[in-house]
Nucleic acid binder design. Sequence first.
DNA 1: TAAAAGATTTGAAGCGTTTCAATAATCTAA
DNA 2: TTAGATTATTGAAACGCTTCAAATCTTTTA
Lengths: 341, 341
Amino acid sequence: MATAKPRPSIQDVARLAGVSLGTVSNVLNNPNMVKPATAEKVSRAIEQLGFVRNDAARQLKAGKSQTLGMIVFDAGNPFFAEMARGAEDHSAERGYSVLLGNSDNKYDREKKYLQLFDEQRVAGVLVSPTNDIYDQITELRSHGTQTVVIDRKADSDRCCSVSVDDFAGGKTAVEHLLSIGRRKIAFVGGPITIQQVADRLAGAMAAVNEFGPAATLSVIESSAQTVIAGRNVGQVIAQRAAADRPDAIFAANDLLAMGIVQAFMFNNEIAIPQDVALIGYDDIDFAEAAVVPLSSIRQPARLIGETAIELVLSEINEPQGHVHQQVTYQPELVVRASTRV
Amino acid sequence: MATAKPRPSIQDVARLAGVSLGTVSNVLNNPNMVKPATAEKVSRAIEQLGFVRNDAARQLKAGKSQTLGMIVFDAGNPFFAEMARGAEDHSAERGYSVLLGNSDNKYDREKKYLQLFDEQRVAGVLVSPTNDIYDQITELRSHGTQTVVIDRKADSDRCCSVSVDDFAGGKTAVEHLLSIGRRKIAFVGGPITIQQVADRLAGAMAAVNEFGPAATLSVIESSAQTVIAGRNVGQVIAQRAAADRPDAIFAANDLLAMGIVQAFMFNNEIAIPQDVALIGYDDIDFAEAAVVPLSSIRQPARLIGETAIELVLSEINEPQGHVHQQVTYQPELVVRASTRV
DNA sequence: TAAAAGATTTGAAGCGTTTCAATAATCTAA
DNA sequence: TTAGATTATTGAAACGCTTCAAATCTTTTA
């Protein structure tokens, strides 16, 4: 293999163009300050040498990078993937790039990414935090790294957050199940320690309580929010005697719901929605294409990502005039075959 | 808001610990070279000041970063998401982080990311390239940035690649359709300019040709490889007179296939697999949960990502002993209800 | 036509690390 | 006990860029 020739530096460009180093830098950063003829010479030299600016040096001088960090529970979940995509596109348009990390809802991973971002001196961080991470975030903020909490309302008004009203979403979901005549509702989701799950459950509870004693809500905690976890829960439910089964299930996300669908199909004994109605959460694209098209609670995933970028960049660029905002979007009920009786 | 205190530098730590700057650096990078007592003092100072190493400075000195770049067609496609996840996890274990970019199969976006990666002086790049990008890659390699082509066989033996045999996959898919008695096969995919699509189509052709004149293959080019694009194609097919419809469809990926399923369901007139059998490609998790569980051609997404990381890191770390490899995995037929007659 | 004003260009300083030759401290063996 | 070997520590010199006060050209203006 060819030995890699060392990268040309701004010095090399300056030498070839017959100008000073400062001028080359100006061509790159303040083109309007340099005479067109000179700029032309410099550009030619850059072209000829194949010069590419070294971002590390630039950052070192600037003390800040043009990179943002983003931590989500699970980028494999289409909801988060869409959110990340929104953030990525939106920030790319503004000259920033995004470093994406999966926390798997684990404190250690979250902490590791935060450390990484800190070493990189990212300009800002978007994070859907686990409960225990607030100290780290505070620490980060005290260093001047702006942080926006996503998919969850910030505990304090000392930072921005972009979220969707999970309580309302949970309530809406269960009210819908009640409205189609179901009374033995089961909530499937977990771990309950996840704030979003807890809020959706609280909303579900509220709906049942308001309805009165004729309705009941049982809680089945899942180990995770994945298709596999959903399948496991579904199998457990399917093994119960028919009389012991709920007549409706509210799953805390669509992945779980899809797993439940699979388990019921496999057993081939429980019909959706006749025997058990089912509603998910997130309204991912695949919900519509499921064996039984899934009712769901839609969240504006892309918009969340975009809004979070807006907020973090506004905070980065106008630190003094910035006022922290807690943006909350309202979720929306989408009815499909899985609850259409 | 609190004014951000400036970050402590290695100098500050050295001063507080009463040692020289070089010693602090050694504690960080060659801990076995420093006396335990000294290391202890330094660690305490680091702790006390909340010192975090500035990666830009480190990179500047090293001339290389611990970051890898990865460019995929579409990170929203679960197949690529899984591949990216594999790459991310695998490289994290080895101390590298991954910067992920979506090219949307667009030359401009691809080029932009390559430029970004180049400025960041990433140690290596994983890219599923469009046709026109080879010059850029060659350029990058000449600068010493190692590159591995993913999900596609490299055109030359001058770089590594990790791919799956798309020709074999296409052939397998259509042979399966022929084996269940279908003769009027349609291939749906696009743009055809995507190498992977072209190869799968070529495999499909080969299967039909080998079978003989009793079987025919028509090609319906889609605008993209998404659920929406699939739905559009499905509607077009549904509008044809029943006699003009194919009796089996091979979709170039599962997203397209799921869109086709949706369109057929909506029209409620075409039964899968009775009227039209359907097979997809990739075997994404959602294929199993589709309205009609989808037959598909499984690709080892995660393994591709992991292998690519292995290769690029081996090339980075042993540039001289490295031999370029073209790793090709074989795809696998997965039969489900959509082709079970 | 000369001085003042404005537009360009220059080059040294410094960002926070790592590296490495030189120096200092400590240990080993005779 | 001491020379010689070994182990720790030091601090100056980059890395490649941006910044900014100073120097040098060009215009304007009187």
